Amino acid sequence: MPDESAYVFSDKEKVCAILINLIKNAIKFTDSGKIEFGYRDFSDPAEFYVQDTGTGIPAARQQAIFERFAK
């Protein structure tokens, strides 16, 4: 039975696209180790996460992942 507190009211397509892109990048840059995804603390706001043991994003480029178009 689904947990009623775990429902997200948002644009399904955008949420799916974001998570799929993050997971694809985790797979692409993780040659060995692990990839984990899910959610934490479903209070307001919810926090989705993708963690991996890959090479990571350089600190100078981390903010760019939140920009629609980054150079």
Rank of each mutant, 00 (worst) to 15 (best):
2 P>C: 08
3 D>F: 14
3 D>M: 12
4 E>S: 10
4 E>M: 09
5 S>R: 11
5 S>F: 10
6 A>V: 13
7 Y>W: 12
8 V>Y: 07
9 F>N: 11
9 F>H: 14
10 S>M: 14
11 D>Y: 13
12 K>W: 12
12 K>A: 14
12 K>F: 12
12 K>E: 13
13 E>D: 15
14 K>M: 14
15 V>C: 05
15 V>W: 04
16 C>S: 15
16 C>T: 15
17 A>T: 14
18 I>K: 01
18 I>C: 05
18 I>L: 06
18 I>A: 02
19 L>I: 06
19 L>Y: 01
20 I>H: 14
20 I>T: 14
21 N>W: 08
21 N>Q: 10
25 N>L: 02
27 I>W: 04
28 K>E: 07
28 K>W: 09
28 K>D: 09
29 F>I: 05
29 F>L: 09
30 T>M: 00
30 T>Y: 00
30 T>W: 02
32 S>N: 08
33 G>N: 01
34 K>C: 08
34 K>P: 01
34 K>A: 07
35 I>K: 01
35 I>M: 03
36 E>D: 15
36 E>N: 09
36 E>G: 05
37 F>I: 10
37 F>T: 06
37 F>H: 11
39 Y>Q: 07
39 Y>V: 05
40 R>P: 03
41 D>H: 09
41 D>Y: 06
41 D>T: 10
42 F>R: 03
46 A>M: 13
46 A>T: 13
46 A>P: 03
48 F>L: 02
48 F>M: 02
49 Y>S: 00
49 Y>V: 05
49 Y>K: 04
50 V>H: 02
54 G>Q: 00
56 G>D: 05
57 I>Y: 04
58 P>M: 07
59 A>Y: 11
60 A>D: 14
61 R>Y: 10
61 R>I: 07
64 A>H: 13
65 I>L: 01
65 I>C: 04
66 F>R: 04
67 E>N: 11
67 E>I: 11
68 R>K: 12
70 A>M: 07
71 K>C: 12
